[in-house]
């Protein structure tokens, strides 16, 4: 494990490391370098712990055991059970649009900007393996028909942000921001009551342009976006967010939707649910009463 790097900002520390498939950052509103390093290391430990436990790319964790169970029941631990409960709630509330079993659809879709779309038969075969309603989940035992898979990627990163932030908040009373690949949580205002200035990245020009700025004192922020991975088909641009009920991409989803909520997980869930509404994303978020930005 590569140790994190530590850099001094204006009056805060920035720790950086790689986890969960992307760059991770911890901003700490304090002065002691050793304390900052210890806290960043703690965040890194938690990010890696969650990544190793819930990644579908590892051969030895609970997700792998579940996905290779071949129809046999699997007993899961308390933490996994809680995440499955949460995923079940999202499935129910989105009337089936949010579905952690929809990962297998990636077998027939490649979002490389090209024009390839799956043929009907292939899609039908894969769709038979999609659907949380086919899964029997009664805590703590999960029974899934063979061939189906679960993927916690849609909530894992936001959960890791909240979990890491909560762990750090118990160790220090200084304000901090945990940012894993753009999903972040701020525990409180900086010294002097100043908020953290969060820039919403322009997905078309990553790293160069900022579309918007959010001043965050406390809470979670997550962005869902359809801009970077897509397929062009019949002159239309189809984003990579798939509707598990049809197997086809959601059309008309916003390029980037940023939600600010009381936790990162809530923000991420709402932004995903909004994107799943396609063109109705803005209205969905307006109805929910949450603060958001749509681009």
């Amino acid at each position: 494990m590569t140790p994190p790097t530590l850099e001094r900002g204006e009056d805060f520390w920035v720790g950086r490391f790689a986890a969960m498939g992307g760059p991770c950052e911890v901003l700490l509103d304090l002065d002691d370098r050793d304390e900052a390093l210890a806290l960043v290391a703690c965040a890194q430990d938690e990010a890696l712990r969650i990544e190793h436990k819930f990644s579908r790319y590892r051969a030895d964790n609970i997700i792998d055991r579940i996905n290779r169970a071949g129809g046999e029941p699997v007993e899961v631990d308390a933490e996994t059970a809680r995440l499955l409960d949460y995923a079940a709630l999202c499935h129910e509330m989105s009337a089936g649009r949010f579905d952690i079993t929809s990962g297998v659809l990636r077998r027939v879709w490649t979002f490389d900007g090209g024009a390839r779309v799956p043929d009907e038969a292939a899609l039908r075969d894969v769709l038979a393996l999609v659907g949380w309603e086919r899964v029997t989940w009664r805590t703590p035992v999960l029974t899934m028909p063979p061939g189906m898979e679960i993927d916690l990627g849609g909530i894992g990163k936001e959960y890791a942000v909240d979990s890491a932030a909560a762990l750090l908040a118990r160790r220090t009373s200084s304000a901090l921001v945990v940012n894993f690949g753009g999903d972040l949580y701020a525990t409180g205002p900086r010294r002097g009551g100043r908020p953290w200035a969060i820039g919403v990245d322009d997905p078309e020009r990553t790293g160069q342009g900022v579309l918007d700025r959010v001043d965050l004192t406390r809470g979670g922020l997550a962005t869902s976006g359809d801009a970077r991975r897509f397929v062009t088909w019949q002159g239309r641009r189809l984003g990579h967010i798939l509707d598990p009920r049809t197997g086809w991409p959601i059309e008309g989803a916003p390029r980037a939707v940023t939600v600010i909520a009381s936790t990162c997980l809530e923000a991420g869930t709402l932004s995903t649910l909004a994107s799943l509404q396609g063109p109705g994303a803005a209205e969905f978020l307006r109805d929910s009463g949450v603060e958001f930005r749509i681009h």
């Binding site: 409960d85 949460y86 709630l89 509330m93 909240d162 909520a261 809530e266």
Partner: peptide
Amino acid sequence: RIAAAACALI
């Protein structure tokens, strides 16, 4: 509902 579930989870 989502907010409560997320916070309870954490």
